[in-house]
């Protein structure tokens, strides 16, 4: 039952991201899947964060033409790193600490994906920095507090 609820959350976040890209373009798209992984990691522990990472990676890899597993691997690393960063940064009830976690985990996700993508096709780091790292990190951090609130409201009802 928990896995089904996590799957629904993941699918909804993925659909929101896809609609965002369809309507507004890809440049300033927030990474809702990363926020969701961190949310479940904080809300229910590493196991739930890991399941979310696997579902999120499966969806992302299905739409991609890159080798299957790149996004799964990246999100799994993010789920683990969220647990590590939580020990040093997170304070219960602190919005700033949650936003900081989102910032660091998003950075890790982008760097892992950059190194994996560079193995397939050459991408200049300056290009990735300007076109992916900066816009995605900024938007994800800005959206994070609102997203956490909404996830919490829905999760409290569904996991009750």
């Amino acid at each position: 039952m928990s896995a089904l609820i996590i799957a629904i959350f993941t699918i909804v976040c993925f659909i929101i991201e896809a609609v965002w890209v369809d309507v507004l373009g890809v440049l300033f798209k927030p990474n809702l899947l990363i926020i969701l992984i961190i949310f479940f990691n904080l809300f229910r522990g590493i196991r739930y964060g890991l399941i979310t990472a696997l579902f999120a990676g499966l969806l992302a890899d299905s739409f991609s033409v890159k080798p299957f597993g790149i996004n799964i691997f990246s999100f799994v690393i993010c789920a683990y790193m969220a647990t590590v960063i939580k020990m040093y940064v997170y304070q219960v009830g602190s919005v700033v600490s949650r936003v900081l976690m989102v910032f660091f985990v998003t950075l890790i996700n982008i760097l892992v994906l950059y190194f994996l993508n560079v193995m397939i096709s050459p991408i200049a780091f300056s290009e990735a920095f300007m076109c992916v790292l900066i816009p995605q990190t900024v938007m994800t951090v800005l959206i994070a507090p609102y997203a956490f609130e909404k996830f919490k409201q829905c999760a409290l009802k569904l996991f009750a």
């Binding site: 896809a18 890809v26 798209k29 992302a60 991609s64 992916v132």
Partner: peptide, 12 residues
């Protein structure tokens, strides 16, 4: 459909 990723430009 299209891939919403920043790293790919793909259509379905």
């Amino acid at each position: 459909g299209r891939d919403p990723s920043n790293w790919n430009a793909t259509l379905i």
